[in-house]
Design a protein around this nucleic acid. Structure first.
Ligand code: MN
Ligand code: MN
Ligand code: ZN
Ligand code: ZN
Lengths: 162, 162
DNA sequence: ATGATATTGATAATGAAAATCAAAGTCGAA
DNA sequence: TTCGACTTTGATTTTCATTATCAATATCAT
């Protein structure tokens, strides 16, 4: 039976064709691996792929991830740390994030009231809103996972300010 | 008469003393220059200082800016570009920002309703909110300044996603 | 004034991400 | 199927903002 990934591969193939780009083995592998995650960094995906497939250059991971973003399958995010996190937004509507400083858990949420107020704020100050970035940082109450997990040697600092 | 800066220099001196740090000519210069701006990058401040004062090493600018952040006089921000913007928050309450993609104008705003809803969202998902990052990107209607200004060779891209 | 301690500045080091470029792969046309 | 124009890959170098080094210099409590 055609799997979810098969469908996406086909879709990717079409997207690529339109742009005179080619469907390569590497792109299939990256797409496949990327879709198995919700939020992942290029480096992490590189490691993940290295475990189960033949070697793929890190440059290719970056290039393909950027390509997926152009195709609307992924979106770049910048949570606390200094490395870009790629958000798998396939079949997802707009959402913002809650990030746990301690265990790094990321929860997606959406709040139409906030979105509406953002519009109002922009309007009030004479701006035509195009985009926004909203991230909530704190500590999750996930005893099972958070408490004993990553007792952060690197505090996974997000935004120490605000 | 004692100027605003004099007051701040005195305050800085006290803050430093408590931490066994010393008040240097360089720190005075950086503080003075920093307070003349609302939002500025290390590099920009470096250039600005270079025009009116004796030379100050870029490393010193960075070190002092970080120090000011520790003292609560400044806060690091990351708007679109890849360089850190230092927010002069002296005598300012919490606020978020509206950024113009075209001319780079930055407007500060605050919305208690949004802040409240953020709390609710965090709570709803089992998070203890510690911090947040909210930035609104778009285009300002400042005909005078925006329309004819920086016809961005570098589009001052912010967050192309979300 | 003096010395213990902190700071500066020139420069090297970092590290994530992008740029290079020759070798290899893809795919539409023949 | 074959061919070649065009794209992609991977190894490596480059970029660029920020931090780390460290010897020389400045600060300040006593
Ligand atoms: Mn997400
Ligand atoms: Mn501000
Ligand atoms: Zn957690
Ligand atoms: Zn503008």
């Amino acid at each position: 039976m055609a799997t979810e990934v098969d469908t996406e591969i086909t879709h990717l193939k079409n997207q690529l064709a339109q742009r005179h780009l080619k469907l390569t083995r590497q792109r299939e592998i990256v797409l496949d691996a990327f879709l198995k995650n919700d939020h992942i960094t290029a480096e992490a995906l590189y490691q993940q792929i290295a475990k189960t497939n033949a070697h793929l250059g890190l440059a290719t991971i970056y290039r393909t991830l950027n390509l997926l973003c152009e195709l609307g399958i992924g979106q770049e995010r910048h949570f606390g740390d200094n490395k870009t996190t790629f958000d798998n937004v396939l079949h997802k509507k707009h959402h913002d994030h809650l990030i746990c400083y301690k265990c790094g858990k990321i929860v997606e949420f959406e709040c139409s009231e906030i979105e509406k107020l953002q519009e109002e704020m922009a309007d009030k100050h004479g701006f035509i809103l195009q985009n926004h970035k909203l991230e909530l940082y704190g500590y999750c109450k996930d005893i099972e996972n958070c408490e004993k997990s990553i007792t952060t040697p690197t505090p996974a600092v997000g935004v120490p300010t605000s």
